[in-house]
Design a binder for these strands. Structure first.
Length: 928
RNA sequence: GCGGAGAUGGCGGAAAUGGUAUACGCGCUUGAUUUAGGAUCAAGAUUUCGAGAGUUCGAAUCUCUCUCUCCGUACCA
């Protein structure tokens, strides 16, 4: 019998499903290992060969860990709330749940064909009420907590209330946005509604007015990346900024811990750097400037307090609250116009428009806190209202933007750096010496910073401060297909829905669109359409995509628990994810939010760790090879690419065609092409000498748009899942992006057939030798055990496949069909190619379905010991010949033997060597 | 601009700790088998590590300078 992969794979998949071979054990004495993939959004397009890349790698690793005796948690689920299903619902009226279920079923079918060892009994879907009940519950905990900077963790809001009742808020050191101080009695005198308002500015999730992109034409709010040049990406409709009441997450409270925590986890430097930049910590000082003819003080943040004597003007963001008060009559009109123009631009546009320097003098002046000089106050949109205090002290000699601004508006540029020329550009390095600055004179910048902060604090005009770029995250979406909030409103005060009434499920609505007056789709639901309703109304917003994905890795540990989001003893056993595999594109989204929620849940002692993903590998993207056909612009004929002369591309229209229409020799299957699209139906052809039309290839992202998608189902059918798994790994290092080329898959397939033949005779009968294995075979096997183990430890899956090929090639050359050898080889191979391994395992006389829990073979280096070693002999570093010598020779003996050799004499040409380097077991180098 | 990753045959890619460059696979050539195509088997060829300099007995690997590619990010005071 030949290697009949279709039959073998189908029967083993059935066996695994029937016997629940990959069911994870609950808490045991075994050491645990948690291998997780980033769960997918089940899109309508199904999987292409790029999607399973990471899943295959993690599956191999999970199976390897099982062979090592670990209790492995290796689950899969779906991030099943999302925009495409909702978009489809808007167009067709079909409930997004139905679309989602269909897509999930299709994903499952495709995933099942690849032979993953997922424990499907633990599947989670973020859109199922059983799951989002607990997303809502976590939201409630965030609502019920505040961040105490004294203990540096989240605490229950009841503790804060107790403190307010006792001492007011003056001793409270919290992450908050409440302005003002109140005493215990003032707190007591507040109405319940006022108290709630105060508490809202302390809660870890809070309601506040935020600016959003509103597109009236589409009747919906758009995310920043859905807006291009002020128009909607879809349809090109105008988008305006609208202030809406939104839920936000006070992630800023965790900025420092999110930063320092990065040092404790094993992620790539690039992702860590992205998160560091995103958090954007900067240290400096806040300084207050008095305003002439006003009791207001302008507070600025600066990282260079040492340059304070270089301040020659101030700039406020156009939205700064003091602008109107500071502006003098004379400049009112100009300031109003500037503010108006700035408000029309989105923040994104303002940031994109870096080169245009704009600003407007307000007519007002501030007083320099040290010199008492009057400095002009300007407004300018290079100052962002949302960062720092929304105001800067401009030091043109030390900051390029300030310098540009000063030049543009002809404002004085003071030089406070010793011996540095600032006539052409600002000097931004911190290696200068300060001058013209009173008490800071002659201090190097770094010392001057400390001295300046000290002085600023002494004089009570400011203090040392640390700022973060990280902003609180808006947590509401005006969408239908997301988690409802466990919130109702009474007199417009939000109330939590009590635990026993969770989950609040999505109500039925007549349309998945916002209401006429711009309320989110959920506002369409009748009161009795809600499974739970209280107060005046329920919350109309839904949660964003990252809500469910911020904690899903916890639910896999205990997916069916109806009483808790995860049982304590289970999370204590499984701990955090040991290996997380997924794309790098979630660097500052999901991966940051999941870390935030983990730290929060850890603060409340629900989970025993504060980083969710200990080690992470980001798999590279698999790119597609698009096929390009050339159509003459003048004659409209289809040309073979090899007929097109260099530099004449522009005379042709280049059209991407479906890659399935291209044969192995890069020629187009013309009959199919004519049927594919009407434009080719009767096109004239200009063929090459062989009578073919050749295409040009180009590497693009794999996407339906470029007609270059390769479907794994087709490959599973043609070559089998084991071949597909190994080929995906064989393509190259996991982390690297690489183009998909189906042609090479034959090589891997042939390897499996060669393996099969190793223990079958010509007629397909099992033929195994029970004798003691040969020395050569043992050497090959143990070399392979070592390499496969090492490769797995460093996640080098591609070299693993190569090493299997080398092993089978060698055993074939040795004509080895030794049972003991092949048995170990099959165990080694089983993580990569589980189906064929199960089949051969049974043929080797073992219990069906047990190869996955066999023992990983133990490497014995004695089998690699050789009596001789072929020394490469180099002259001046160039290898000239090899010399077989016993491995037990001493350095001196090796040197003697080599020099005595006639080949060496030939290369020496009678000269005496200057030096001879001998590295036993490695190399001999002769210097002449 | 800033940050990160990378550059090895015709192609995908191998080469802990510096020590036989191009393993493994694809493709290519020749031969065998086959009615042909495909498939299979056998034999074989090609290539000096992005450029330059340095350290070393010896550099793909270490150091410096430069070039190019990909990814992320962008007025953050």
């Amino acid at each position: 019998m030949e290697y009949n992969f279709q039959e073998i794979e189908a029967s083993w998949r059935a066996f695994w499903a029937k016997h629940k071979t990959f069911k994870t054990e609950e808490v045991t004495d075994k050491p645990k290992y948690y291998v997780l993939d980033m769960f997918p959004y089940p899109s309508g397009a199904g999987l292409h060969v790029g999607h399973p890349l990471g899943y295959i790698a993690s599956d191999i690793y999970a199976r390897y860990k099982r062979l090592q005796g670990f209790n492995v948690l290796h689950p899969m689920g779906y991030d099943s709330f999302g925009l495409p299903a909702e978009q489809y619902a808007i167009q067709t009226g079909q409930h997004p749940r139905i679309t989602t279920e269909e897509n999930v079923a299709r994903y499952r079918e495709q995933l099942d064909k690849i032979g993953f060892s997922f424990d499907w009994d633990r599947e989670v879907r973020t859109s199922s009420p059983e799951y989002y009940k607990w997303t809502q519950w976590i939201f409630k905990q965030l609502f019920d907590c505040w961040y105490n900077k004294k203990t540096d963790k989240a605490e229950r809001i009841s503790l804060l209330i107790a403190e307010f009742e006792e001492n007011g808020n003056k001793a409270v050191h919290a992450e908050h946005d409440f302005e003002g101080v109140f005493s215990a009695s003032e707190w007591g005198a507040m109405s319940a509604k006022e108290q709630q308002k105060v508490l809202m500015s302390y809660r870890l999730t809070y309601l506040a007015d935020s600016w959003v992109n509103w597109c009236a034409e589409l009747g919906t709010v758009l995310a920043n990346d859905e807006v291009v040049n002020g128009l909607s990406e879809r349809g090109g409709h105008p988008v305006e900024q609208k202030l809406m009441r939104q839920w936000s997450m006070r992630i800023k409270a965790y900025a420092e811990r999110l930063l320092t925590g990065l040092d404790t986890i094993d992620w790539t430097d690039s992702i860590k750097d992205m998160q560091r930049n995103w958090i954007g910590k900067s240290q400096g000082a806040s300084v207050k400037f008095d305003v002439v003819d006003s009791d207001k003080k302008i507070e600025v943040f600066t990282t260079r307090p040492d340059t304070i004597y270089g301040v020659s003007f101030m700039v406020l963001a156009p939205e700064h609250p003091y602008v109107d008060e500071i502006t003098t009559k004379e400049y009112k009109a100009g300031v109003e116009e500037y503010k108006h123009n700035a408000s029309l631009k989105s923040e994104r546009d303002r940031q994109a428009d870096v080169k245009n320097i704009s600003g407007q003098f307000t007519g007002g002046y501030a007083l320099h806190p040290f010199t008492g000089d009057k400095v002009q106050i300007w407004i300018g949109d290079y100052v962002l209202a949302s960062y720092g205090t929304g105001a800067v002290m401009a030091v043109p000699c030390g900051d390029q933007r300030d310098w540009d601004f000063a030049k543009h508006f002809d404002i004085e540029i003071k030089n406070i750096f010793k011996d540095i020329d600032i006539s052409e550009a600002a000097y931004t390095e911190k290696d200068s010496v300060i001058a013209n600055s009173d008490f800071l004179n002659d201090l190097p910048a770094k010392k001057a910073i400390k001295r300046a902060i000290h002085e600023i604090q002494q004089r009570g005009i400011g203090e040392g401060q640390t700022n973060y770029r990280l902003r609180d995250a808006v947590f509401s979406r005006q969408r239908y297909w997301g988690e409802p909030f466990p919130i109702s409103y009474k007199d417009e005060v939000p109330q939590l829905v009590s635990d026993e009434n969770l989950p609040v499920t999505l109500p039925e609505v007549d349309k998945y669109l916002p209401t006429e007056d711009g309320e989110p789709p959920l506002a369409r639901a009748e009161d009795d359409a809600w499974n739970y309703f209280e107060g005046d109304r329920m919350e109309y917003n839904t949660m964003p995509g990252w809500a469910g994905s911020s904690w899903y890795f916890l639910r896999y540990m205990d997916p069916k628990n109806e009483d808790e989001f995860v049982a304590k003893e289970k999370v204590d056993y499984w701990q955090n994810v040991d290996l997380y595999i997924g794309g790098a594109e979630h660097a500052t989204g999901h991966l940051l939010y999941a870390r935030f929620w983990t730290k929060f849940l850890n603060d409340l002692d629900y989970i025993p760790f504060n980083e969710p993903f200990q080690k992470m590998i980001n798999q590279g993207m698999i790119l597609g090879k698009s096929a390009i056909a050339f159509i003459g612009k003048e004659d409209g004929k289809l040309y073979s690419y090899d007929l097109i002369k260099k530099g004449e591309d522009s005379n042709y229209r280049q059209v991407k065609i479906l890659i399935d229409l291209v044969n192995d020799d890069e020629s187009i299957a013309l009959n199919e092409l004519r049927k594919w699209q009407p434009q080719f139906e009767s096109i004239d052809l200009v063929k090459n000498e062989e009578g073919k039309i050749i295409v040009k290839r180009e590497v693009d992202k794999m996407s339906k748009r470029w007609y270059n998608v390769v479907n794994p189902d087709v490959l599973c059918e043609r070559y089998g899942a084991d071949t597909l798994r190994m080929y995906e790994m064989f393509l190259g290092p996991l982390e690297q992006s690489k183009p998909w080329d189906t042609k090479g898959i034959n090589g891997v397939h042939n390897f499996l057939r060669k393996l099969w033949r190793l223990m079958h005779d010509k007629d397909g009968n099992v033929a195994l030798s029970e004798e003691a294995p040969s020395k050569d075979a043992l050497k090959t096997l143990h070399k392979t055990i070592k390499k496969i183990g090492d490769d797995l430890e460093r996640f080098s899956f591609n070299t693993g496949v190569s090493n299997f090929m080398i092993c089978v090639n060698e055993l074939t050359d040795q004509k080895c069909n030794n049972k003991a050898i092949i048995k170990d080889l099959v165990v080694l191979l089983s993580p990569y190619a589980p189906h064929i391994s199960e089949e051969l395992w049974v043929k080797l006389g073992n219990e069906p379905g047990t190869v996955g829990i066999a023992k990983f073979p133990v490497f014995n280096k004695e089998h690699l010991v050789e009596a001789n070693f072929g020394y490469p002999v180099s002259f001046n570093g160039k290898m000239r010949f090899k010399l077989e010598l016993p491995t037990n020779l001493s350095k001196d003996d090796i040197e003697k033997e080599v020099l005595a050799n006639e080949q060496a004499q030939k290369w020496l040409e009678g000269k005496a060597p200057k030096k001879v380097i001998v590295v036993p077991g490695k190399i001999v180098n002769i210097v002449i």
